[in-house]
Design a protein around this nucleic acid. Sequence first.
DNA 1: CGCTTGACTTAGACAAAGTCCATCGTAGGA
DNA 2: TCCTACGATGGACTTTGTCTAAGTCAAGCG
Lengths: 138, 138
Amino acid sequence: MSDLLERLRGRGWRMTAQRRVVAEVLDGDHVHLTADEVHARAVTRLPEISRATVYNTLGEMVTLGEVIEVTTDRRAKRYDPNAHRPHHHLVCDRCGAIRDVRPTGDPLSDLPAGERFGFMVSDVEVTYRGVCPECASA
Amino acid sequence: MSDLLERLRGRGWRMTAQRRVVAEVLDGDHVHLTADEVHARAVTRLPEISRATVYNTLGEMVTLGEVIEVTTDRRAKRYDPNAHRPHHHLVCDRCGAIRDVRPTGDPLSDLPAGERFGFMVSDVEVTYRGVCPECASA
DNA sequence: CGCTTGACTTAGACAAAGTCCATCGTAGGA
DNA sequence: TCCTACGATGGACTTTGTCTAAGTCAAGCG
Ligand SMILES: [Mn+2]
Ligand SMILES: [Mn+2]
Ligand SMILES: [Zn+2]
Ligand SMILES: [Zn+2]
């Protein structure tokens, strides 16, 4: 049922009610929740779960590589369970909706050596911005 | 002398000591200072300048299109006077050094219609990450 | 030049997002 | 079942940024 939860088993992870609920809340496609959104949803299932635990658990999932941190604006970080298929993001400037996208080509190869300033470049993040269909029609 | 200051003249901008100092601090190439860094440098020239004024002035420069906000991490926004030549950023994962880069090709055209989810895509931000020469040799 | 006035500046309160810590509780092995 | 190291908790604290009320001043006008 919960793909993320499955991935987290068998990693020596001590299972608690809190961790299970966080993993369940975070499961799915195109999921990019903030820590407080995760907390709000977790509380409906486990009313006594604390903000600190949500932050701790999300941080551990990121360390394990099962969840990715996404920062599309200067507000809160967002947590993305789609960690095993590299992708980029498309963000609506009006409502903040986020979709996972997979551009063609490799943006890393678009950075010529003369533009690398001697850096060892290892990664690239791409954020596309625009207006989603709902906001465009409203 | 100050290219940014020159650009800001003749726009109906009421000139004050505070605005001049902020513009001077921000002038140059590969400049990506946080608001507090701008404030710290401005204070050495104009000790009574307030944090609020630095934030206000930076915000106005962004509105005028003479300065760009750059967010390479989840810490503070950075302010970039290089507003008239579109570019992307290369960031050192260790020390946070930032360089302006101009990749070849247009990342926008790398996003096929089938990956646009009906969005009207208008902009793209690219952040390359790696290790700078100084950090690599240390 | 000096007045007037609306725009600009200021200090500090406030807010959002996140971290840290001392203490309490419990998962899971012995 | 018992033990204990690891996890959870609430609250204080930090960082980054916004807002407001009151004071100040740049610049046009006479
Ligand atoms: Mn994603
Ligand atoms: Mn730049
Ligand atoms: Zn939208
Ligand atoms: Zn470095």
